[in-house]
Design a protein around this nucleic acid. Structure first.
Length: 271
DNA sequence: TTAATCACCTGAGGGC
DNA sequence: TGCCCTCAGGTGATTA
């Protein structure tokens, strides 16, 4: 389940293979994704050279002279570099064939992802222009979070998972960051002080950086562009450990649902 | 404007 | 073994 570290790991994995390469062919086996793949997408891509591979939030941006291919991996999507002899497995929905003979293969069992073309400045696309800052940018810190939280009654966990506040913090890392910062996930965002927000911002950055360093978190479906799993799951302190003991105080970890999401916390360490 | 809920989708896992 | 049900989760759309 790709969150920001998984998307960044994917970006770093595919970039060396596709930057500077021309698209020869596009094979669409299943156009029904979150939004249907446009009929004219292959025609727009063929003949274009991939100038760079960027990322904004959990969106990958394949930039060409004519426009940008925006890719979202949804819940279960992955991108892999394969050669033309590689077998096509179930849920391998799209191949972007390059002049090197390699292919960028999009696989997505649950089809929550998307491939969209835009000819405009990609950051002005309706999906991207209202997004909050990148969590690893200088713009994102405790002061920023504190200002954004004024008069907000929503729970802190839903608050930091809101892409208009900060992008890329999904359920796994929200659980982990709140545990590390000692903040109860149900606490109202507007009732947390500046000092605690400063600690939370530091923890979000630290956890995301560590997850990127080890190649993301592998739970069920995620593999990186080489087809290998990430290793951050071995570092998870609360997520997926409900009923187990807190690593700090040995109390039993509790599980609740917030915003329809599984939320695990220690009632002794988080207030 | 904010908060809550729904919808999309398939595979894994548990219960019978 | 096979069937059925629940759960997992990102995010835009809809509703209150």
């Amino acid at each position: 389940m790709p969150e920001l570290p998984e998307v960044e790991t994917t970006r770093r994995g595919i970039s060396p293979h596709i930057e500077g390469r021309k698209v020869d062919r596009v094979i669409v086996r299943q156009p029904r994704l979150r939004w249907p793949v446009a009929d004219d997408l292959p025609a727009r891509l063929i003949g274009q050279t991939v100038l760079s591979v960027g990322r904004r939030a959990k969106y990958l941006l394949l930039n060409t002279e004519a426009g940008t291919l925006i890719i979202h991996l949804g819940m279960s999507g992955s991108l892999r570099i394969v050669d033309e002899t590689a077998n096509v497995a179930a849920h391998d929905h799209i191949d972007i064939c390059l002049d090197s003979g390699l292919r960028l293969r999009y696989r997505d069992p649950r089809r929550f992802g998307a491939l969209l073309w835009t000819s405009q400045e990609p950051l002005q696309h309706s999906l991207l222009k209202h997004l909050g800052p990148e969590p690893l940018s200088a713009e994102f810190d405790g002061d920023y979070l504190y200002q954004q939280a004024v008069n907000r009654s929503v729970s802190i966990k839903q608050f930091i998972m809101d892409g208009r506040v900060v992008v890329g913090v999904g359920n796994i890392y929200a659980n982990e960051a709140l545990f590390s910062a000692g903040i109860h996930p149900r606490r109202s965002a507007g009732r947390i002080g500046l000092v605690r927000y400063q600690r939370l911002a530091v923890m979000i950055k630290k956890i995301l950086l560590e997850a990127i360093r080890v190649g993301g978190t592998s739970l069920r479906d995620f593999v990186n562009s080489d087809g290998n799993p990430g290793y951050f799951s071995q570092s998870l302190q609360v997520y997926g450990r409900a009923g187990g003991n807190c690593i700090k105080c040995q109390a039993k970890l509790r599980e609740i649902r917030l915003g329809q999401r599984s939320t695990v916390y220690c009632s002794n360490c988080q207030h």
